[in-house]
Design a binder for these strands. Structure first.
Lengths: 214, 214
DNA sequence: CAAAAATTATAACAGTTGTTAGAATTATCG
DNA sequence: CGATAATTCTAACAACTGTTATAATTTTTG
């Protein structure tokens, strides 16, 4: 019973690994995986960079793990969107909103941009494939929305590129210490971006806390 | 008269510098400025990396020059948008479309993403300020559009973040050898992204060449 | 055609950074 | 408390890459 309170060795290790992934994600999402050094990641955790090697194989593995987790979050979010949304546009809206919120909560950053040539190795190939699969899944939802009448007639590829650009870009400007909560940001950006596809766009959009000083 | 045909020394040098900027922009926009090496840039031009140093001071100067040119193109495009557009939304639409087209024609890439910590030095500060000034200019246009009734009520910051995310993301997926021309891409993406802000969104959007194989 | 200037390539250098070995420290457990 | 294991740090190494000096080459010019 009481031994539940004291985490055992392997879960402690897992917790520390998770903390490293969070720290890495924060730095990667701002500076890019190439621009960030392992020393940057280690310093933000207050340890030496050598200490990281007990929890990740190497830098490539660290980048990979961050991307994998982000993709899993994206997949789970989209699945929930498909379950809970009535039409395809709402499925997309829910899927993207949950993605942003979950990323900010679980990873500490809104999104992770995967640069070209950032990864190498066999494992990397599978990660690229998962990313492509997610995009294809999104495109199918757009086509579905055009069939059910919720989404306007546009090239699905372009629609998804526009949506994902808006979403990924949040990583560049969002600051946790700012006036906007994760929910504010997610609903604000997703609400606006998906309005572009909406066949029946609302006149009003979710309001956000004022940030102008006066 | 005929001596106009033979470019003199300084213009030859300027032409070569321009070619280096194009090559660098292409590689930077895909891999990020940190992920790309000077050897990559040189190799894509078929010269040694040492040869680049006759045309740029160093790598920082090269990144800076690319960003400066992109910002000038963005400013010029937005000025033309302000001149030619009737309402503020149309000004934005024209400004962004011209930006994408001009970037693809003059720089060979649709956009350049400026990573955090990518630049250093005094000159860099001014570049960051110019980027901020451009964003502020865009936000003012959004506010103007809300005053003239062309743009829906949304936090201007969010609106501009959404627009610029869509635009910048084009750098990650656009391929010159693809089926879409620069104009297709620019009108497709900008038309869709600005529809999100439109108080009177059109039911139809600019069509794009089909890319599905059948 | 020869000399001078401009351009480029080769090769070496220096700083950074990913990675690893071994010492030092801390935590765990009988 | 002492011994063992786990963790972390320091320090060194090696690879990569930005930068520069020097030589080779090409272009220009008288």
């Amino acid at each position: 019973m009481w031994n539940e309170a004291i985490p055992d060795r392997s879960t402690q290790q897992a917790l520390k690994r998770k903390a490293i992934l969070r720290a890495a994600a924060t730095i990667f999402s701002r500076q890019g995986s190439h621009g960030a050094t392992l020393e940057d990641v280690a310093a933000s955790l207050g340890v030496s960079k050598a200490a990281l090697y007990r929890y990740v194989l190497n830098k490539n593995d660290l980048i990979l793990a961050c991307q994998e987790e982000a993709l899993e979050i994206a997949d789970r979010a989209l699945t929930r969107g498909e379950d809970e949304g009535t039409d395809a546009l709402e499925k997309i809206r829910i899927g993207l909103t949950l993605y942003l919120v979950a990323m900010m909560e679980e990873m500490g950053v809104p999104a992770l941009i995967l640069e070209e040539n950032a990864l190498h190795g066999d494992e990397a190939e599978r990660t690229y494939e998962k990313r492509d699969a997610y995009e294809i899944r999104m495109r199918r939802l757009v086509a579905e929305g055009q069939a059910d009448g919720s989404i306007v007639a546009v090239e699905p590829k372009v629609a998804v590129f526009m949506l994902l650009g808006s979403i990924h870009w949040v990583a560049k400007w969002y600051r946790p210490e700012g006036a906007w909560s994760p929910e504010d940001v997610a609903e604000g950006i997703v609400g606006l971006a998906t309005r572009a596809l909406d066949t029946r766009p609302a006149a009003a959009l979710p309001a956000m806390p004022d940030t102008t000083t006066h």
